[in-house]
Amino acid sequence: MLLTRPEAASRRCAAEIAARFGEDLPVLIAPLMEIVALPAEIPPAREVIFTSQNAVAPFVARSPAAGRRAYCVGGKTAAAARRAGFETLEGQGDARGLLPLIRAQHRGGGLVHARGEEVAVPLADLLNSAEIETKEVVVYRQQACALEPAIRAQLARAGLVVAPLFSPRSADRLVQELGDWRGRIWVAAISATVAERAGPLRPERLEVAERPDLRGVLEALTRLIGPAKAG
């Protein structure tokens, strides 16, 4: 099992995988990105949007959570925001799915979308088009990390690599790092877009999560490796 998310996220994922599939499943943590906080200037707003838990800590480091409400893309992000001191409203795991929630619950005034440098859904544009004033602030970047030679050697020795992929960026990075690798690989993709971006890896088997969150990816992994482990 190859986990390529940033270190902390990969370790949380590894714990979930061990709980579901057992401790004997070999897991290799090899982050292809790390989270780097950026010195952003935070606009004043009573309500904040988080489409990634990675945005919470760098936001709070520059602007307090007290007295603010946060619209959060899913459970993990909402939990991080609550720990930071926000009142939270939780979406279903997809940025576009936050739109009806915000429309229904918005109390008036401007919103701030705290995000990374890259974003899959232009949420601020969509909200502004709906006449809900929303500003964006980029509070972190995902900085690329290369696969170490020792990791490459382990992958080369593996008979099969199973790769859960949680974002288009993750898929792109894995393609970049394994572009000349022709071993067997199975992919569990968080969305159809991620599955498409993983195409150059030529996965032998591919499962797409039915819901765009960790639980959905774990269920996709179960469809991939459940029968194999049972055998």
Rank of each mutant, 00 (worst) to 15 (best):
M1C: 02
R12C: 01
A15W: 01
I17E: 03
A19P: 00
D24S: 15
D24V: 14
P26A: 09
V27E: 10
V27I: 14
V27Y: 06
P31Y: 05
M33R: 09
E34F: 08
L38H: 08
P39Q: 10
P39D: 13
E41C: 12
A45G: 04
R46G: 15
V48P: 10
V48M: 13
F59W: 13
F59Q: 05
V73D: 07
G74Y: 04
G75D: 02
A80G: 02
T88F: 09
G93L: 06
R96E: 15
G97M: 08
L101P: 10
G108M: 10
L111T: 07
V112I: 15
L123H: 00
T134R: 07
K135N: 10
K135Q: 14
V137D: 02
Y140K: 01
Y140M: 00
L147Q: 03
P149N: 14
A150T: 12
L155S: 00
R157I: 03
A163I: 01
L165Y: 09
S167A: 14
W181Y: 06
G183Y: 03
A188I: 07
A189I: 08
I190Q: 04
R197L: 09
A209H: 04
A209Q: 03
L214D: 08
R215A: 13
V217H: 08
L218P: 00
A220Q: 05
L224R: 04
G226D: 09
